[in-house]
């Protein structure tokens, strides 16, 4: 069988992502980000997101199919994110994909968003194979997944309160930086000293889980006290220290899992993986421990349609029957269940 041609649609949060894959070759990759729409609210507003997806989806699908240079009739399957995510946002892409599949009489696959992130590195690293430990961190989720086989996943750790991206957003606000907080802190921290302030690293006794409430509390308490005492360090120093605290925990817990499972491959996905300090620290640690690191490019780390199509490509290759067009989104979908 020649490589299957698959259209993938992702609308779980604030990016409308559409891509066409031929096997794991990305023929087209288009994205509409809604960051600006949400910026004035300081976070993703579900209703705004759903509306923006509705506006973007049709032209983007057109664009993706056109850029791939294929005719819709040639597609072997259509895939869309089924969950987890914002329910209104998910429904837009899911319903669009189902309608398209029905019209074109093509197989339809509903894909777990997190599995999409697990597949993303495969599109850039053909040699990437399980078993692997994957750090998934974004504004909506933070978890450490043990990929035993493709399709066989165990979530080793997760956040007990905020996702890492939410923590970045909120902390950026506390120190007067804009939204989205991740890139803002990343940029501000460039000239800062990560050791300027020693913020706590939480949940040391749960080797694979994250918690960011303690960090937020200590940052707020620290800022108030330092303002009163007029001992406030520069904003780059504070940003660098905050970033270091988050990155430290993400790296430490990821490699705790590597040690526990004895795997020699580490992957990553999610918007937080765009953070330069996190990427650098993961590289250092992987080199030190002599494990292979598969962190894809930033566009492949953040939400996109290609990763969704990639999972469907594998489904087709494995002869897994398509999903019923009567299936629905599942906003609280859990990996491996």
């Amino acid at each position: 069988m020649s490589d299957p041609l698959v259209l993938g649609i992702e609308t779980s949060c604030d990016e409308t992502g559409v891509a066409v894959l031929e096997g794991f070759d990305v023929l087209s990759f288009v994205l509409a980000s809604q960051t600006e729409e949400h910026a004035r609210f300081g976070g993703v507003v579900p209703e705004v997101a759903a509306r923006a997806h509705v506006e973007a989806i049709r032209p983007l699908v057109h664009q993706a199919i056109g850029a791939a240079g294929v005719h819709p009739d040639q597609l072997d399957a259509i895939a869309a994110t089924q969950g987890p995510g914002l329910i209104g946002a998910l429904m837009v892409g899911f319903a669009f994909a189902k309608s398209l599949a029905w019209t074109l009489e093509k197989p339809f696959y509903g894909i777990d968003h997190m599995e999409g992130h697990l597949y993303a590195p495969r599109l850039e690293f053909p040699e990437y194979e399980p078993p692997a430990i994957v750090l998934l961190a974004s504004g909506g989720h933070s978890q450490i997944v043990h990929v035993r086989e493709w399709g066989e996943y165990e979530t080793l750790g997760t956040t007990i309160d905020d996702a890492a991206g939410e923590a970045f957003d909120k902390l950026a606000r506390f120190v007067g930086l804009g939204y989205p907080g991740g890139p803002a802190i990343d940029a501000e921290a460039e000239d800062g000293d990560p050791k300027a302030v020693a913020f706590p690293r939480a949940l040391r006794d749960r080797p694979f889980d994250f918690s960011f409430s303690g960090l937020k509390t200590s940052v707020v308490t620290y800022l108030e006290k330092a303002r009163d005492d007029e001992t406030l360090p520069s904003r780059p120093d504070i940003a660098a220290s905050i970033q270091e605290a988050i990155v430290d925990v993400l790296v430490e817990k990821t490699f705790n899992a590597v040690e526990e499972t004895g795997v020699t491959s580490v992957g990553g996905g999610g918007g937080v993986l765009a953070n330069r300090r996190l990427r650098a620290r993961l590289r250092e640690e992987a080199a030190r421990r002599e494990v292979d690191l598969f962190i894809p490019s930033i566009r492949m780390c953040t939400d996109n349609g290609a990763m969704i199509a990639a999972v469907a490509v594998d489904r087709l290759r494995d002869g897994i029957p398509p999903d019923d067009l009567g299936s629905d989104v599942d906003s609280s979908m859990r990996l491996g269940s």
Binding site: I160, D161, K170, A202, L203, R206, D209, S211, S213, G214, K216, T217, V220
Partner: peptide, 19 residues
Amino acid sequence: PTPDPVPGDMFVGRVIDLY
């Protein structure tokens, strides 16, 4: 699992913001 306990003297509004 829960993070470190909330200090009793913290204002509820702040609890909502931080946790």
